[in-house]
Simulated assay, not measured.
Amino acid sequence: MTSDAPLDLPGYAHLYSGKVRDLYAPMGQDGAPRQDQLLLVASDRMSAYDFVLDTPIPDKGAVLTQMSLWWFEQVADLVPHHVVSTDVPTAVAGRAVLVERLDMLPVECVARAYLTGGGLNEYRSTGAVSGVDLPEGLVDGSRLPAPIFTPSTKAPAGEHDEPIPFAGVVDEVGQALADRARDLTVAILQRGNEIATERGIILADTKVEFGLRGLQLSEGEDPGAAIRARGADAEIVLADELLTPDSSRFWPADQWEPGRQQASYDKQFVRDWLTSPASGWDKSSGEAPPALPEDVVAQTRAKYVEAYERLTGRTFGSDVSDPIRLDV
C-alpha cells in the first residue's frame, strides 16, 4: 500500500501522493495548474519502517496540520514559513494548507537535544553523530551538553536517509546556506524545548524542512547547481510540517529516565507494537507490516491529541470546527 486514491477537489489538480501527504496544484485562470502554489494535504496514513501501514490513525492529519500552524506562529521571529492561506476546500478543512512552491534544500535538517534512535546507534558505533563527537558514557535518553545539528541525506522514496557530516551539507548547498540551515534548525529545536518544557514535554529531536524563496531558476537549470551558486542570496523558508509527533520525538518530562527507552507521544508507540511479539511481524522479512489492532489505533490517536492539547492549550475537536488560522 502506498497511498489512498486522490481526492476529487474541484479547482485543484492532483500532483503527487507521498507516504502521508498529498499534493495538489490550484488551477489558474488559463485552466493549467499554477506553478507558484500547492495545496498540502495531510492524510491519516501512518508510516513506519519505510512502509505505509494499512491502518490509518483517525484525525492524525488534522492534528499534524493544526500543530504545525501553531508552531509556525511560535517561531515566526526566527524564520518565515510557506503558508499562503488556511482557506482550503471543505473536503480537507483542518488538515490542509495552501502553500507557496519553494526550491527545497536537498538535505534533511535534523537537530538533537537528547540521544536516542538512530543517533544512539551511530554514537555506540563511532562515539559521534553525523561527525559531531560526543562525550563518553551517554545512554539512551541522555541529554546532550548542547543541541547538535545532525543532518542526513534526503533519500529517494523507498531508500533510507543516511547521516552525513556538516561538510556534506556544505558540499550540497554551499557554506553560507549550510551555516544558516544549521543555525536555524538548532534555534527551532531550542525554541521548541523552551515552550514544551513549560508544558511538561521534552522535545528530544526534530527534523525540519527548508526551501528557498527567490532562487529564480532558469529554464532547464539544475536546482542543485543553482542552490550552490546562488542559494546564499535567496530567502530561507520553513516548509512542510513543524515540531509534530511525526517529525519529532516528544517525551513526557515526568517520565524521563536516561538508560531506557522513553515513554513518548510520537509514533514510536506504533513502532514498538510492530516489533513486539504481539504483531507477529519480522522487521527484516521485507514483508509489509500487519494491520494495527483497534486498541493500538485508539492509543496512538490519544497520544497525538494529548500532545497537541498540552502544547497548544487548545481542545482538539474531532470535527475540526475551530481550526487554527494564520494571519498571512
Rank of each mutant, 00 (worst) to 15 (best):
1 M>S: 14
2 T>V: 07
7 L>D: 12
8 D>Q: 14
17 S>A: 12
18 G>D: 04
26 P>E: 11
28 G>S: 11
30 D>N: 06
31 G>K: 02
32 A>P: 13
34 R>F: 11
37 Q>L: 15
43 S>F: 00
48 A>H: 11
49 Y>G: 13
57 I>L: 15
69 L>P: 01
70 W>M: 05
73 E>L: 13
78 L>T: 06
79 V>N: 01
81 H>Y: 05
84 V>E: 15
84 V>G: 08
90 T>I: 15
103 D>A: 10
104 M>S: 11
106 P>F: 09
107 V>H: 00
108 E>A: 02
113 A>D: 13
118 G>H: 06
119 G>S: 08
120 L>H: 01
125 S>G: 13
127 G>A: 09
130 S>Q: 11
132 V>R: 00
134 L>Y: 01
137 G>C: 08
139 V>L: 07
140 D>P: 00
140 D>L: 00
141 G>Q: 04
142 S>M: 05
142 S>G: 07
146 A>R: 10
147 P>H: 03
147 P>Q: 06
147 P>F: 00
150 T>H: 00
154 K>N: 09
158 G>R: 07
159 E>M: 15
160 H>V: 07
161 D>N: 07
162 E>S: 15
163 P>T: 10
167 A>Y: 09
167 A>L: 11
169 V>I: 08
170 V>Y: 04
172 E>F: 08
176 A>S: 15
181 A>S: 10
182 R>N: 10
185 T>M: 03
186 V>C: 03
188 I>T: 03
188 I>P: 01
191 R>P: 04
193 N>S: 12
196 A>D: 01
197 T>C: 14
203 L>G: 03
205 D>I: 02
207 K>P: 00
210 F>N: 02
212 L>W: 02
215 L>C: 06
215 L>P: 02
217 L>Q: 04
226 A>G: 07
227 I>C: 02
230 R>H: 12
232 A>R: 13
235 E>R: 10
238 L>D: 00
238 L>Q: 02
241 E>Q: 09
248 S>N: 06
251 W>C: 05
252 P>A: 09
257 E>N: 14
259 G>Q: 06
262 Q>F: 03
264 S>L: 04
264 S>H: 11
270 V>M: 12
274 L>H: 00
274 L>S: 00
279 S>L: 05
287 E>K: 12
288 A>V: 11
294 E>C: 11
295 D>C: 10
297 V>R: 08
299 Q>D: 11
301 R>S: 14
306 E>Y: 12
306 E>L: 10
309 E>T: 15
312 T>N: 10
315 T>R: 15
319 D>K: 12
320 V>M: 13
324 I>G: 08
325 R>T: 08
326 L>M: 13
